[in-house]
Design a protein around this nucleic acid. Sequence first.
DNA 1: TCTGGGGTCCTAGGACCC
DNA 2: TCTGGGGTCCTAGGACCC
Length: 418
Amino acid sequence: MYALIDCNNFYASCERVFNPALNGKPVVVLSNNDGCVIARSNEAKVCGIPMGAPAFEYKQVFEQNNIYVFSANFTLYADLSNRVMTIISEYSPEHEIYSIDECFLKLTGLFEDLTTYGLKLRNQVLKSTGIPVSVGIAPTKSLAKVANRIAKKFTEKTGGCYVIDTEEKRIKALKWTKVDDVWGIGRRNAQKLKSIDVNTAYDFCQLNKSWVLKNMTIVGERLQDDLNGKPTLDMEPLEPRQSIATTRTFETDYHTFEELRERIVTFTVSCAEKLRHQHSLCNTLTVFVESNRFKEDEDQYTNQAVINLPYPTSSSIELAEFALQGLRSVFKKGIGYKRAGVILMNFVSENEYQQSLFYKRNEKQAHLMETIDKINSKLGQQKVRLASQDQKIHKMRQERLSPNYTTNLNDIIEIKAE
DNA sequence: TCTGGGGTCCTAGGACCC
DNA sequence: TCTGGGGTCCTAGGACCC
């Protein structure tokens, strides 16, 4: 059996942990730049705020419904996520952290009643972290997803844990699940399926196998098997990332090369730090720039430069030089740039990689990077940085940022005695 | 005025080989 | 009129996830 543990409205729940006055109140969390809604408490969902809603369009709705609005505080969310995952991972020798707020467990050799087990897990996470989670348990991963949905939807009835352990329950659950809500069936395929009158997960499972293979590739075929109770999607081991990206939408449009340059260098350094953290070197670097697609009356332009590096590296200095080379080749005057980014890919391990006949890895720089990483991890991000980076830590709009309760001593919660 | 960010996997088609 | 056959590797773009 597999269990899927999913945090309820995770970011909104994180904001509530140290601010219990928010319990029972509608809460939304906004993306970077306070752009879009990326998390909603149940109360906010009831107010009709969709996922991804542009904040400025919903300003009135926020006010009319007394909604508590927060800028995304990813430092806080990442820290609370780690706490939740630590607890969950103690419940089984095999766990897979699927996203910041979801974790699969493989359950083998359990003697305990599964519902009891799930409820115990749920209660411990809630008690230890303040984060409410839902637990779904079933014979396959995709069915555990379905079970989780039921647990979340009918929290009062289920107590937040639902188990699919009989064929009757499986059929009933699949008939209840709309085809658009199936894990792995996105907008495109849902549309296609509905056009042939396939409306529920159950209908999808009844479909002819060759139709599924032809129209939804092997991905669809695997999903169908998995939903039919034949475990096809297994636990995936934790691997280093295959690509690392830093991309941003700017607060205003940039028109000059210099403005873009310092941002691109900072993006590159941020990617390089993550690259070194997983002990990889990269072989390919992509730089892209985009104009403001919402200003339809202005000239639109997007371009990217893909640079195949002459030797694999993780040095911020070297990568920044390549990134600037890329930026120079895509930069065009007279455009208002609204978004840009850097993507690293084609990684090799720091310890085993093909050396070049003509270039040698700069060992001095590798040591320098190690030292900079150590200083920054001790004294705070970007304390040591390249001169070509932003001179200021770049200000994005974050008007409603909550304190870093758990990661900054100055933000630690105060408890006042009467 | 304002509209996010970071990932993975699969396939078709091009370029190449003999 | 007619234009082979069988491979591999790479990449861009699509579809999906959170």
